[in-house]
């Protein structure tokens, strides 16, 4: 039964639907559909004693469209390019500052814990969107599953605490708030930025693609 071609896809998608329903009921960032579906799928696989390899062999079809979906990120970027034109220098400089902070801090953590290179490149893309961070980690020899987990924890932290933290450190300009959230916590943070306001949302979603691209560029130098 465990080698049925549809079981893995079925479990994954059904648990995602349950996650989406739960999210509508409890408006808490921990009830993210992706988090719920990951946990439910793992629980079911362990319960049914299905090894990860046989799950992966058929669930990999879900990921088939990941490259076209990532290519598609150019569309919202193009649609928002007019907000970039107004404050180009401020926007690019601050996203670059965030990306450098992320890479340097992860580098320092790796030094402090004397992590090997594979663990370092696993963690370097942790602030950027999974669409870019996951294949980037893979190409550099990192563990993509741990990268995805780190990216998701980052997103949950950003989504939950962004509003309070920005208030605490007195970042009040809506443009600055949006840039800070999108650069530090990718799409999951952006969901919160969109609730905070239109400018915050637009700036945050612009930062997703730009922070991802800048990270890809800067990582070439390590």
């Amino acid at each position: 039964m465990t080698d049925c071609a549809y079981l893995g896809v079925l479990i994954s998608l059904a648990s995602y639907c349950i996650g989406a329903k739960l999210k509508n009921k409890f408006r808490c960032s921990l009830f993210n559909p992706l988090v719920i579906s990951g946990l439910l799928t793992i629980a079911l696989l362990l319960l049914l004693k299905i090894p990860y390899e046989s799950y992966r062999a058929d669930a990999k079809w879900i990921s088939y469209l990941l490259t076209p979906a990532t290519v598609s990120l150019a569309v919202p970027l193009y649609e928002q390019v007019h907000v970039l034109k107004k404050n180009t220098l401020a926007i690019l400089t601050s996203i670059l500052a965030g990306v450098i902070t992320s890479l340097v801090c992860v580098g320092l953590i790796a030094l402090f814990f004397s992590l090997d290179r594979a663990s370092l490149v696993t963690l370097l893309p942790k602030s950027i969107t999974t669409a870019i961070g996951m294949p980037l980690s893979g190409q550099l020899g990192g563990n993509t599953s741990i990268t995805v987990a780190a990216i998701i924890i980052t997103g949950v932290v950003g989504n939950t605490f962004a509003e309070g933290f920005l208030k605490l450190i007195r970042v009040t300009h809506p443009v600055a708030k949006g840039l800070a959230i999108g650069t530090s916590a990718h799409a999951m943070g952006t969901a919160r930025a969109m609730e905070m306001g239109e400018v915050e949302g637009a700036m945050s979603s612009l930062s997703i693609a730009l922070a991802g691209l800048l990270t890809v560029l800067l990582i070439q130098f390590i």
Partner: peptide
């Protein structure tokens, strides 16, 4: 949805 298989890879 497309990230589910990678996330499940954590197991």
């Amino acid at each position: 949805l497309m990230f589910i298989p990678a996330l499940v890879g954590v197991m």
